[in-house]
Design a protein around this nucleic acid. Structure first.
Lengths: 300, 300
DNA sequence: TTTTTGGTATTTAATTATTTGATACAGAGA
DNA sequence: TCTCTGTATCAAATAATTAAATACCAAAAA
């Protein structure tokens, strides 16, 4: 029990590396400076110094910390590898829900998931708590967590919310000054759409990625942390569904390209009402596709 | 260490209460039924039955559970009282930030706050994790939590986001059918605004509550879990600021009433463009008020 | 004197061992 | 056949514990 000394181990190894850059007889900087350099507290620095002194790598007395011998390979302490980052965890989690069609109401086994994904239980708990703000999971009365996600209600409300955010972005986009660098990006996107349209018979799989970039470009216009947070999750969910719903993929993508181009052209001519109308139509299509893909998976 | 037997204690007391409704010699229902009734697992029911058997309250052998004597007051086990609910925790937390002007970047001492508010450390951790989705707090690299909130950027982005949500709501509102019951609510709100305007000299403090109800009515038109979640937090933050910023309160509130009335009238006449324009103006005022209360006057 | 550094004490946070609680399953009894 | 109990296994919550951070003070150096 009690916390691990991972921090100590990493600091120890880092300080060894610093020692490698020194000659025998040279001295190390002050505890405070070392702490700042290694990004740990002075307490850890002092434990590391004590250990190095015991191992005979340095001689430490008061302020003098003299290198006695060059560090050897065997001096390095074993560290256990890092778990997943919170972004990777998010990916994994959505992947798990969507790929295995985990139905709403399923209890979430924190122990098992943490073990499978090689993350700390604690990290997973925290992640679930943060997801609860999106109403994807909730705490059960008798303890533990429960998956709420991907009912049709959820998908409808998610789509609606996405529409609100994206129409706002389109409106902002159309009002950008003519010298904004983003217009060049948009022209490039148009070009890529045209190319993909011409080769749609063979390259229709590439649309998913282009779609993501397209919507990111639009959404990126709004510099807002709340919007950004939501759009990240929305993008993940839509993207996954497109990825796994292979029905009519080619026609769907061809149609979407046409819709994108209509929106791009409206934006390029600074025709805000036309852009909004095009965006609205496209988002309706997206919503229907998402719902259809849920129907196929036979969600309640 | 290890978890508390709170669940056992509450189930024990509850079963004692059930026993009080029985006569000596009568029998209790099956374990499964008791478990359903007490809303705990069979394991807990069995522990409770074992204890009651030991105490001589019942005789338990296989399927027969016979009441031997009426329960006495002293039989009840002591339970510790409940902590705060998650809504109360949210209130407390915002109250703490806003009232004591906790500056951005402040490290959050989980141990101390949990002690002061009499909540489990674990609950507080979970709450902070959920708040991190709103970028109000974040995990620090070296461990622990850090308050991010209420910078001018935060306030501006929050206001902008609120504007997006609220304009959408106003638009939806204007398109509601004439027989929707909400029109009556709106007329009532108008009446209350008129009354408050006439008595503004003495009752200007009452505006805060009316304002909250007004925006809830507008926002409530959109049935969307994501919107709802955000509007709850937004309302809390704006409401708190109005509550503590007493500068020019009367004029501010009088002006806001006028703006509300303009929006209400536009809605009542189903004039969507006018309603949107009125809402836009009002939200700009709100944004300025929020920023002013933060002590920020110069912003783009 | 002022600033920096090191020694020491105290506080806070992360983690896990342990206990409580939930649940699955087999077999007895109605 | 269905319900109920006994038993075993597994998951979840939490308190104890150790690691790490920080506050404080004195002493040394600038």
């Amino acid at each position: 029990m009690a916390r691990t000394d991972e921090r100590f181990r990493e600091a120890f190894n880092a300080l060894l590396t610093i020692c490698e850059g020194l000659k025998v007889g040279e001295t190390l900087p002050s505890e405070t400076q070392l702490a700042a350099k290694l990004e740990v507290s002075r307490t850890v620095v002092r434990s590391v110094l004590t250990r190095l002194d015991n191992e005979g790598v340095i001689q430490w007395e008061g302020r003098s910390k003299t290198l006695l011998r060059a560090p050897r390979k065997g001096d390095q302490l074993a560290t256990r590898e890092e778990g997943l980052s919170s972004e990777e965890l998010e990916q994994r989690f959505l992947d798990w829900i969507l790929r295995f069609d985990v139905p709403p109401g399923t209890p979430i086994n924190v122990t098992e998931l943490a073990r499978n994904w090689n993350v700390q239980q604690h990290s997973l708990q925290e992640f679930l708590a943060s997801l609860s703000r999106f109403s994807l999971v909730r705490r059960r009365k008798r303890g533990g967590w429960e998956l709420l996600g991907f009912t049709s209600d959820f998908a409808i409300e998610l789509s609606d919310f996405r529409t609100v955010l994206e129409l706002n972005a389109v409106s902002k986009f159309a009002q950008l000054p003519d010298d904004a660098p983003i217009w060049a990006d948009l022209k490039k996107l148009k070009q890529e759409h045209l190319e993909l349209r011409d080769q749609i018979d063979t390259r229709f799989h590439d649309f998913s990625l282009l779609d993501e970039r397209f919507h990111n470009t639009i959404g990126g216009v709004v510099k807002n942390r709340f919007t950004a947070e939501f759009q990240r999750v929305i993008a993940l969910i839509f993207h996954y569904h497109y990825q796994w719903d292979k029905k009519d993929e080619q026609e769907r993508n061809a149609a979407a390209i046409t819709e994108h181009l209509r929106l791009i052209d409206a934006l390029l001519t600074r025709d805000e009402p036309a852009a909004l109308a095009a965006a609205k139509d496209h988002l309706v299509t997206s919503k229907q596709t998402l719902l259809a893909s849920l129907g196929i998976h036979d969600f309640a």
